[in-house]
Design a binder for these strands. Structure first.
Lengths: 321, 321
DNA sequence: TTGAAAGCGTTACCAC
DNA sequence: GTGGTAACGCTTTCAA
């Protein structure tokens, strides 16, 4: 009878009908756990996501869900808010018992765990992160940082500040620091001296970014433009400007990164990355591998970045001096 | 050896140590599927969420995740974007094989399914929805609608429009329509005639709401205030005002509902509902029932609403006439 | 206290 | 094509 459920090629039409009828009458429902135990797969994919409530993470997750929508896989969510979480989840995820495959976001898995997972053969796809021997869906964050900063430089700004994540963050996020690298590179090339006081680090949070921006604006020589490493942080900058009575973009230009929902509303100039698509592609790669039981090629898929100019950037205002 | 894993009371210290050592050496990891099959539970709770990417849903989900954080349950996400989805998910969820318990959000389960789930004994908690014989975590949406509208009336507005979800929506959401009921009740009590043209329905989406608001503002007698059934829709209204060259709150007052992240940023006056807490409480109730294998009392837990006055409401501007 | 064995609900293999 | 049965990896029960 399992043969008809998994529509094996060898069942006569009559038997199939008979079994189907019985199933209907008894209200039979296959137990996914038993099936999973027997087949050695759980029909489940896991998504390891740091701060899954962040707009960018949600958008990526939406892509994953969309990819799973057509399949018969369930999505198990592993939220990571502390390094300990990460440790626990990866420890639990070793072995393909919990999930048939993993989409890991923004979070380079500890290489030790990665090796074990790879050795055991758990298919993994990294999204917004890279790892040895594992396929990844990424963008060129350095280039993104260059786009944002370059735009500001082209407008004539020379006092450009940066707000982003701490390069030594406990999770090992790399996107933020790379955007910062792009920022520094452009500054170098434009012959603009790098000012340490113009670079501030803090959590990916609107209010934190706002505080950081207020510090920047209180500097003796405040920046005429701020590049925030994410749109969430950019909104904090916008808030700081508003509170400080600064007009945007006349008195202060602001560029963000991501292009989340709120950005269009806020008229924020930003660097768009295909968040939804990254989740979609990541999950598709994974499903493909899981379904065909084919090992994943460790290809790095790079998705394009787009500069979106809206209403928060303009040439610097001529002021004192 | 399973005895030591489930730390049964009757194992000698020495054997326990011995087993633990072996576990360590062999790198043994229990298979959750097998355990689940044997014990008849999957250590999983399912969350059925319509449009899980909506900020309000995400915030509720965050509460659920927080509640699960301390437990040993995994979260399986069932996203619902079409009535068909809903059907499929509930059909699959019948029987406690897939999940040991369910948190169902904003979406009154079809009563037929509800009965079956109840009969089989799958613990369910409804959040932002009600159902016969099932515990629920709700707010008083009618009262919320009254708060918002009452505030506008108290400010002196007599031309108050409403933007919300279609009462005949395919999912059976009730929150929106109830807020609308509160709106109508206050209008009645204030002796303000109800204008059909002042009530517009559309999807829970910023751009849709913006279009609706534009229609309202193009009316021969445009409203001086708009109550949007959700903050997402309220931002659409704000956008329409901005595009139309209307100042908020001088020319147009706007009230939303939910108090999501963006609302504080936008300075939106709104009715706050405890989104995070609703998810937290819902999941806690569920876990409690699942852990003790105690049936759930069909209690309706009502969470409080708070009116949050910010910067988008003011007395109506005196104009023509 | 511990070892052995039955059973959980499927699938997959092997005869018929 | 179809029926029977081992096996999946764990928990639980029953002896020892």
């Amino acid at each position: 009878m399992s043969r008809v459920l998994n529509d094996s090629p060898k069942v006569s039409v009559t038997t199939r009908a008979r079994v189907l009828a019985a199933i209907e009458i008894l209200g039979y429902r296959p137990n996914p756990l038993a099936r999973g135990l027997s087949r050695g797969r759980s029909q489940t994919v896991g998504a390891v996501v740091p701060f899954f409530t962040h707009a960018s993470a949600v958008e990526r997750l939406r892509g994953v869900v969309a990819a799973l929508g057509t399949s018969h896989y369930d999505l198990v969510l592993f939220n990571v808010e502390t390094p300990l979480h990460r440790e626990e989840h990866f420890a639990a995820l070793i072995g393909r018992d919990r999930a048939d495959g993993l989409v890991v976001m923004s979070l380079p898995p500890p290489s030790e765990h990665l090796k074990r997972l790879l050795a055991i053969g758990v298919p993994i796809v990294l999204v917004d992160a890279r790892g040895d021997g594992v396929p990844a869906v990424v963008t060129d964050d350095i280039e993104g940082g260059r786009m944002a900063t370059g735009h500001l430089v082209a407008l004539g700004h020379r006092h450009i500040a940066f707000i982003g994540e701490d390069p030594k963050n406990a999770f090992g996020f790399t996107s933020g620091p790379q955007r910062e690298a792009g920022y520094r590179a452009v500054l170098d090339e434009a012959g603009i001296p790098y000012r340490r006081s113009y670079v501030r680090h803090g959590a990916h949070d609107r209010t934190v970014a706002r505080r950081l921006a207020e510090q920047l604006l209180a500097l003796r020589t405040p920046p005429t433009a701020i590049f925030a490493s994410s749109d969430v942080q950019a909104t904090g900058v916008l808030e700081a400007a508003r509170v400080g009575g600064l007009r945007v973009p006349e008195d202060l230009s602001v560029v963000g990164f991501d292009d989340i929902e709120i950005s269009a509303y806020a008229g924020l100039t930003t660097v768009r990355q295909p968040l939804f698509d990254s989740g979609l592609l990541g999950a598709r790669l994974l499903l493909d591998a899981v379904d065909r039981e084919r090992p994943l090629d460790p290809i790095v898929h790079q998705l394009p970045l787009t500069f979106v100019e809206r209403a928060t950037t303009a040439p610097p205002h001529r002021r004192r001096r």
